[in-house]
Design a protein around this nucleic acid. Sequence first.
RNA 1: GCGGCUGUAGCUCAGGGGUAGAGCACCUGGUUGUGGUCCAGGAUGUCGCGGGUUCGAAUCCCGUCAGUCGCCCCA
Length: 442
Amino acid sequence: MSNQRRFQAPKGTRDFLPEDMAIRRHIETAWRETSTRHGFEEIEGPTFEHLGLYTVKSGEGIVSELFSFRREGGRDDYALRPEFTPTLARMVAARGPGLPRPVKWFAVPTHYRAERPQRGRLREFVQWNVDMLGLDSPTADAEVLATGISALEALGLDPSMVTVRISHRDAVALGLESLGVSSESMTSAFELLDRRDKMPPEVFAEKASALGLDDDGLSDFDRLARTRRSIRGDLADLASESGVAAEAFAPLEGLRDALVDAGLADWCEWDLGIVRGLAYYTGSVFEVHESGGRERAIAGGGRYDGLVELMGGPPTSAVGFGMGDVVLGLVLEDRGLLEEVRPAPPRVFVLSAGEDADRPAHRLLAELRRAGIHARRSYKTTRNVGKLLGEASRAGATRAVILGSELGEGRVQLKDLVSGEQELVPLDEVVRMISGSESANG
RNA sequence: GCGGCUGUAGCUCAGGGGUAGAGCACCUGGUUGUGGUCCAGGAUGUCGCGGGUUCGAAUCCCGUCAGUCGCCCCA
């Protein structure tokens, strides 16, 4: 290590040692199993795309946030994918007309963003994407949300720990309109709504008045932005709390019914301050947050009915979300839900208690593995059976097979490492006994 | 791009002008067959890097790099 150059992982990337990888697989397994159970099929796309795929949607300003490159001598600009939705929209635009509707796809891709890393945000991360296209109904929104929530539940979270905050751009637009915001100013109003907590009150007031809001309008705007309410409640209550005319919330009715019918009411609440920066959202928008508000959003998504068309496909309704592994991992860690997650332990540990037993031990090991059993041995040279059993225990094995002098009569010790009991059994029977036993492990 | 904090053994850290320590982890042994304990022993660092001050710097000063947290941004 002295006269060689030492490399470290690039900024914002992670090395996954076995313990880390076990956690990553734990999360990804929950994502995949939940997706499949809800009828979504897995897809994958290229890790890098033409740069234009991202600038067409987000403008040139996005480039500074991307890892983009041009091949030496090449003419095309590429970028490592910062998100999956453009790839998805491209795939659907290309193949969409021939696909049975609705399209229900999910992916678990890695993504890359050239940002300054901080808690909950890295330069390389995994993000679960769940999307449903071609069904213009709130039941699609609810089904997508049900899938996300179900995965959180599978990972041990419950409604006391996380909340899905939901809004709807149409409802908020109608509400803002009733406060006097013109349709030309609507985009700016959304932007102001999104960023209201990031500016001093004077600046907020100034920008609000630029939208045509007087003092009353400003206070109503603020009230709307802070409105949070159970989705079980009457929408009329939402109207009275936000100060906006009840008619504005008509777009929420179908969504509310679908969420309640899907059994998601305990997890969800209306939060009219949720906007999401992305310009392509057209209807429902939502974010999943840790209840204590200590971490960044665990997931975010919404309806984006115009994007497939933007990619050259037919007009296609769409709704989906992304859930990253970084914040989710932090939340699970905070809640102590990862303590039991570790690399798979072996079902059995084979050790020889004497030189004469080495070859029979190796033969047994091979036989166990051929039978599909996760079996390990020690590579130490010691004959100290105590040390070897210690190694078996540390590896997490619940049983050990000890081959020794009893081999002369064709028998070995089969030891239960949990109870400490052991019995002499015929060598020929070991594989059958272990494969036939009920074991939660490996 | 800006700011706070932190860089000493594989990990967590202590120390602090006279050329380095602890715990954990790791390895070996405890002689020929029973456990995460115990005992004994062992390896490991250019104290992030560069420069300056000094007889002497891990220690003080300057710079730089890296990590981390936050701001900006956040698909």
